[in-house]
Amino acid sequence: MLTNERIIEEALARITAGYVFPERTAAVEAAIRGRLAAGAYEGLDGPLLCETVTADLQQVCPDKHLRLLWTDEPQSLEPVDDDGGIAAFTALLRAANQGIRRVEHLEGSVGLIELSRIATATDGASAIGAAMQLVAHSSALILDLRACLGGYPEGAAMWCSYFFPDDQVHLNDIYERVGNTTRQYWTVGHLPAPRYLDRPVYVLTSEVTFSGGEDVAYTLQAHGRAVVVGATTRGGAHPTARHAVAEHILVTVPTARAINTVTGTNWEGVGVLPDVQVPADQALEEALKAAVRTP
């Protein structure tokens, strides 16, 4: 069984090697090692260790993706099995209907799609297309991201693509520390369902909305394609890898950062600011009233 000290050492090694802002890693390491030397982590069980180290990490580096996570599912510690958490997250998406929680038609022929996660653009394409097909003839669309906890940039780009006419819209870029590369994200040329054009789109947000969910909300808002209704989101804009540092503990390391082509920045630390700010539990009612009023 790994000691808490060894777990923390493994986590710091991952952070130092992969964090998207390498200039911040020395301060992170110094702070955590200082707490370790002071005995702050002695005797803590797994969940409490994760909570305590995460609080210390974010005190010195307020990046909401930089954390230790406890998982009830045992993780392989073999290097050959380390894929940055992709396989586990893909399995979660498949079990959760590719993140599509609900599709409905509301009063006034308003469509509603509720998402809990943002799927990949490969595995998730048919499910995303099926949802968009069901609302294809609505008069307005409400995309409910209030409980959306994240997902894949490629999937976020696919969701956004439905609201633009072609593949000529440069949505955003993602800079990756490894390789010092920047990947561009454009609207997708071929989609498995009709595009949703010339009709209002409302995106619902809450204090829970995070990461990939924020990506969709921020991108559609910045490009003038949706009205965001609800509460300011959590503020996590950095694509992240997950690495097992113990059988039930993961370190999540932001390895890249998003750059919106309209704003030149992202929502990290500040969240997505709604166009119509209301308590999250009132956002659907507010968006539905606006959608029904719109000619």
Rank of each mutant, 00 (worst) to 15 (best):
L2K: 15
N4Q: 14
R6N: 10
E9V: 03
E9W: 00
A13C: 00
R14G: 01
I15Q: 13
G18W: 11
V20A: 07
F21T: 04
E23V: 01
V28H: 14
A30C: 04
A31C: 06
I32K: 10
G34L: 11
A40N: 00
A40E: 12
G43M: 04
L48D: 06
L49K: 07
L49Q: 07
L49N: 12
Q58G: 10
Q58A: 11
Q59T: 13
C61A: 12
D63E: 15
K64I: 15
K64H: 15
L66N: 09
D72L: 03
D72Q: 12
S76E: 02
L77S: 12
E78R: 14
G85V: 03
A91D: 01
A96R: 11
G99T: 04
V103W: 01
G108E: 09
G108A: 08
S109I: 01
S109V: 00
G111D: 08
I113T: 07
S116F: 00
R117V: 09
A119F: 08
A121M: 05
T122E: 08
A125L: 06
A127R: 13
A130H: 01
S138I: 02
S139M: 06
A140P: 02
D144A: 05
D144Q: 05
D144H: 03
D144E: 07
L145P: 01
C148M: 04
L149E: 15
G150S: 12
A157G: 13
W159G: 03
C160P: 05
F164Y: 06
D167I: 00
Q168G: 07
N172C: 14
Y175W: 13
Y175A: 13
E176V: 12
V178Q: 01
R183G: 03
W186L: 08
P194G: 02
R195Y: 11
L204F: 06
V208Q: 08
G212A: 13
G213M: 10
G213V: 09
V216T: 06
V216M: 05
A222T: 04
G224V: 07
R225N: 01
A226C: 05
V228Q: 06
A231C: 02
T233R: 04
G235I: 13
G236R: 05
P239A: 03
R242T: 09
V245D: 09
I249W: 09
T261P: 01
T265P: 02
N266V: 14
V272D: 10
L273W: 06
L273Q: 13
P274Q: 08
V276N: 08
V276H: 13
V276M: 13
Q282M: 12
E285H: 02
L288I: 01
T294K: 03
T294R: 11
T294A: 14
